[in-house]
Design a protein around this nucleic acid. Structure first.
Length: 206
DNA sequence: TCTATGATTGTCT
DNA sequence: GACAATCATAGAT
């Protein structure tokens, strides 16, 4: 058995992310096999992290002990979840990006009617949350002692080959390949390059 | 099949 | 007041 991701320091959050691949996430009647993650730190080398500028009311959980959930709302309508890693006082977290439904398939389908197929049920951070029926209320809860809505457990089999690449949706810090996924898994979301979202008509010149 | 765009609100400057 | 670790859809190719 490998060393537990729970015991890794914040500086090795990328390693923790790798080890979380393949783990099972159980919540509200649906169980997922984690197939894609991203690591975020906050030590100053990671401008893409919410914690890069220090602790705020939103990201306070990231500075806490490992094994807790950091949930945030994005774009006004979606939720994304991270598992906090590293020692207390250091910000580090692993974003749960995608998973394969291994239990509660019929329930998952009902929760995601827009999914194109079973492999699309949780092929994205917000989709994953929707399938597990989790939201803001899960923020700050534990994923290891069963007191929260989401509980993680070690996989019976090793996840297989793990690939790495740049993180999705962030323009800065694309030097570090801190997105990890299980090679060849159909539930992994495709990498989105340069989405021209920088186009903002913020010119109120009228 | 691929790409561009709108939706919508909490959080931080 | 502007932006954000996204998703679904319409329209182009």
């Amino acid at each position: 058995m490998e060393e537990n991701w729970l015991d890794l320091p914040a500086a090795e959050v990328d390693l923790a992310a790798r080890r979380l691949l393949g783990w099972r996430l159980a919540a509200n009647g649906v169980t997922l096999r984690l197939t894609e993650v991203e690591a975020y730190s906050g030590l100053g080398e990671d401008p893409a992290s919410h914690a890069h500028r220090g602790m705020t009311n939103r990201n306070a959980v990231m500075f806490g002990p490992a094994g807790f959930l950091y949930v945030y709302q994005i774009y006004g309508m979606h939720f994304c979840a991270n598992i906090v890693c590293g020692e207390e006082g250091r910000a580090a977290a692993v974003l749960l990006r995608a998973g394969e439904v291994v239990e509660g398939l019929s329930v998952a389908r009902e929760r995601r009617p827009a999914a194109r197929g079973d492999s699309d049920l949780a092929a994205g951070p917000a989709k994953l949350m929707q399938v597990l029926a989790l939201d803001r209320s899960a923020n700050g809860t534990s994923v290891i002692d069963g007191t929260g809505p989401l509980t993680v457990s070690a996989p019976a089999d090793p996840p297989g080959v793990i690939e790495a690449g740049p993180r999705v949706g962030v323009t800065s810090a694309h030097d570090v390949a801190w997105r990890f996924w299980i090679a060849g898994d159909p539930t992994v979301s495709a990498y989105r390059r340069h989405s021209a979202k920088t186009r903002r008509r913020s010119v109120p010149d009228r």
